[in-house]
């Protein structure tokens, strides 16, 4: 078995799985809160859609990082490149920032989103403030993605 490839694939998989788990949990929390509000005030749906969707971006970031790994490994071109165990480990570690940042920030962004839903319930005109506060959490997911991409770009394989 080519352990270098195994490690690299495990890195890509963990980026998608961890960030995706964070997003699904976060979207679940914010969307449940939105459902509660919509059950009484359905007209607030457009604002609530944005607050509920915000924690979903972490899952996309995880997928972007995994896509970088897939391209690096040559899986899409048909000819997989050779990856040493050391290089595989480097790719694995490079995927962790986006994975863990996505997991934690996704859940917290969901919680901030749920709190934002309550702002919309009482003061619909302050909706943008709630979105901005939820977007602050996003910063750290973006930094995780950037770190992972920069690290992946620095790893030479093949």
């Amino acid at each position: 078995m080519d352990w270098g490839i195994v490690l690299a694939v495990a890195g890509a998989a963990s980026a998608v799985a961890l960030a995706g788990a964070g997003s699904s949990k976060g979207v679940g929390i914010a969307a449940s809160a939105s459902d509660g509000l919509i059950s009484e005030s359905p007209e607030k749906f457009p604002a609530l859609l944005i607050l509920s969707a915000l924690p979903g971006t972490q899952g996309i970031y995880g997928f972007v990082a995994a896509f970088f790994v897939i391209i690096k490994l040559g899986f899409l071109g048909g000819a997989a490149v050779h990856v040493t165990v050391e290089q595989g480990l480097q790719i694995f570690l490079a995927c962790l920032p986006v994975g863990f940042n996505g997991l934690i920030s996704g859940i917290w962004q969901g919680k901030v989103g749920a709190a934002g839903v309550q702002v919309v319930a009482k003061h619909p005109q302050e909706f943008m403030k709630a979105v901005i506060l939820a977007a602050l959490v996003e910063t750290y997911a973006i930094l995780g993605l950037l770190a992972s991409i920069l690290l992946l770009m620095g790893i030479k394989v093949g």
């Binding site: 914010a30 459902d35 509660g36 509000l37 005030s41 969901g110 749920a114 309550q118 009482k122």
Partner: peptide
């Protein structure tokens, strides 16, 4: 508390509080 199981209920209650 910070219990996500209450997300729906609290969202609804905040609307009812108005």
């Amino acid at each position: 508390s910070s219990d996500p199981r209450y997300a729906f209920a609290v969202g609804k209650i905040r609307a009812l509080e108005t």
